[in-house]
Structures are given as structure tokens and as C-alpha cells.
Design a protein around this nucleic acid. Sequence first.
DNA 1: GAAACGGTAGACCGATCTGTTTACTGGTAC
DNA 2: GTACCAGTAAACAGATCGGTCTACCGTTTC
Lengths: 201, 201
Amino acid sequence: MSRVSTAPPDELTPGARKILDAAATLFYERGITAVGVDLIAKEAGVTKKTLYDRFGGKDALIAAYLRERDQRWRAWLTEWVDGHGGDARERVLATFDALAEWMLRRDPRGCGFVNAAAELPDPAHPGRRAVTEQKRWLRGYLYELGAAAGAGDPDRAQRLADELSLLHEGATVLHGLGVADDPVGTARALAEEALERATAP
Amino acid sequence: MSRVSTAPPDELTPGARKILDAAATLFYERGITAVGVDLIAKEAGVTKKTLYDRFGGKDALIAAYLRERDQRWRAWLTEWVDGHGGDARERVLATFDALAEWMLRRDPRGCGFVNAAAELPDPAHPGRRAVTEQKRWLRGYLYELGAAAGAGDPDRAQRLADELSLLHEGATVLHGLGVADDPVGTARALAEEALERATAP
DNA sequence: GAAACGGTAGACCGATCTGTTTACTGGTAC
DNA sequence: GTACCAGTAAACAGATCGGTCTACCGTTTC
């Protein structure tokens, strides 16, 4: 599935690019509120002035961080499904394999969006919109995959999408807390059952 | 199920009690890092000196907040199950009704422990232990309920407990993000299926 | 009646927070 | 060659951060 380019066509200046990369790492690993703009600028090898010139403020930087994270996750997930999924049913289950691989190799601290939402109580914060958009997109994607797998009836497909996204979130949270052995495997098994029921005659 | 007492027998001094109450509200509603000790003391109608005399520091106060939250949740859940559950199967499903009621009446911002973990990256933080203990306890409780409901085989009961706790977490997260209509209902329906499978001959 | 305790009042500490400002440098485009 | 732009360097502002300190007050306990 040839994509035009890997991700965003980097309209960012070199300084802005370094800032966003540093912010992404620091925000995810240490938390949004706990990380100051001074540290971000220092870690990016850039002055605070550049940060404020490029992004306007910390809130806008938070939103940019979440939007880019969203883009990368969407690209990762769709490419994984296109590359590893076979028939329609396997494509649904492949989303859980993609999740396992994503968390294994880069994100042991759970869902960056859920973590961000925990630190952004204000519903009007620009970063919150990015969070809800990400969750809505995932549910929509799962809806399409589920419908293609045979849950043709809209009601059944809706319900399946609700179930699949719930399983995704549950697995991510438990993985992040490190209290369960193989939460993604558990979720995948439950997804298999839900899928069978939704596509049964 | 006669409990010795409702919760902790309030060994706290009046000042400490007010501090813990104010901290609980502020930490949950605004986030842990975003709330300073000055604000907590002011909101509790107490001086900072009292706060530091009683709790030692912010980190210890965070841990106390999470421990007490854990105690209340355990009491709420077990009492709900004892009061509303009928047979063993209904007792398992009652945990989801308890969750729905809990979140409806007091906690629209998702799981306080998951949110706290998002702000406490350091695994050695005393608050983190409270989080993992809470999750472990819930899984253990669900294991007992599941085993009593007929999942006698240890392997099946273990798997059922994994599934049920995953459904709990998924429902709580989706509820907190406000992107799904009735995540707890979805989780309860999935739990019903998992329960039937686990207790089938 | 003195010691111990829980508390108030409030100043103080150094560090850090987000955000702004001035002055200067190097490259690129017209 | 000049106007623009991305950037550095560094000072500055006012607020807030977690945490400490001294001095005092009222009640209980021995």
C-alpha cells in the first residue's frame, strides 16, 4: 500500500523539528505538567525564544505533540494491518498485534493520549481535542474493519466497534500499569469471540 | 458480610482529615502535579506547617490520597456486590453495575489510579505502589468471584479474572474520555459472555 | 503548673514555572 | 545590497513550586 510519504511532509523548521522531538519524548516519559519549557529547549539544543517563535506557547506545543503522535499511530496501525492482515477477519485481529508491537518497542508507559487526558482536565484545551479525535478515529477504523469482516448490519457493526475499542483501551492501560502478564493477548482472544458472534448468521 | 468498620477508623487529626479531603478533590479534578501544597493547605483551611507536620511532604500526601481512595473503592465495591448480587454469577456482573454507579455519581474523569500513574513515572514513588496494589486487589477479587461462579479450574479462573479486569479498565478509560455512549454496558455484556464460556462444561 | 500536642500566622528560602525582551549572527531571496 | 528569516545568547519579569522556620495559642495530660 504505497503511501505518499511516511508521515507529515516536515514543513517544520529544523529548530521546530528538534523541539517537537524532544517534547514528545519528555512529555511521554515524564508527564506533561512535570516538564518545563526550559528543559525542552535545553534538550532540543535550542533557545526558549525559538520555541515560543515556532509554537506560541506550551499549550500549543502540547497540542502539536499529540497531533503528531496521533498521525504516527494512525500510519503505524494502518500500515501494519495492510501488511500483516489477510482476510477481513484477520485484519481486525491484526490491530491487536500492531498494538502489542507498538507498545513492546516504544511505549511501555501506556497510552500517551490517556495519560495526556489525565493531565488536561480542561475540556477546552487544544490538546484534549487531539485526544478525543484519536479515540474517535480508532473507533471509526475498527468499525470499518468490523463491517468488512461481516458485521454488515449497522447495529451489530456499531456494537462490535464499541467492543473492540474497549478491548484496545483495556489492554493498553493494563500493559502500562504492568500488572497483567499479557493483556493484549487477552484482549485479542476476547476480540476473536466478539468477532465471531458479530459475524454469525 | 459484617465488616469490622466502614473504613479507616479516622486516626487522623482534624487538620489532617481536612487536608486529605481537600487533596483528594484537587488531585483528582486537576491532576497531581498541577496542584501545589499551598493550594491544598488554603483549600483545607489549614497552614502549610500543619500539612508538613502531619504528612511529611507532598509525595507522602499523594500516597495517602491514593491509599484512602483504594480503601473507599474496595469498601464500595464489596458492599455493592454483597448488597445487589444474587447468585455467584450475578455477583460477578454486579461489579460492573457498581462501577457504573461509582463513576456516575462521583468520578467522571476516569480512574484516579490510572490518572495518578500517568503522573508518577517513577516506579519507586510511594504512590505507585498504591496504584499497583489497587489493581492487583481488584484482579484478586474478580478471581474469587469468578471461581465462585463456576470457573473452578484454576487456569480458567485465572483467564476469566484477566478478562474481567481488562473489561473494567477499558470501560473506565472510555467513560473518562467521554467518547463512547455506554462503555460500562458494553463491558458488562462482554463479561457475561466471558463468564458463560468460563463456566461452560 | 509544666510539658506535650495540634494548630494558626506568616515570613522566608532557593529553585523553577511560563513567557517576554533586547541585541546580534548567518543565510537566502529578490 | 538589502530585506527577511531562523536562529543564538542571555537577561528579565512575576508567579509559583516544595519545603523550612520562628513565634504564639489553646487544650489535654501527668
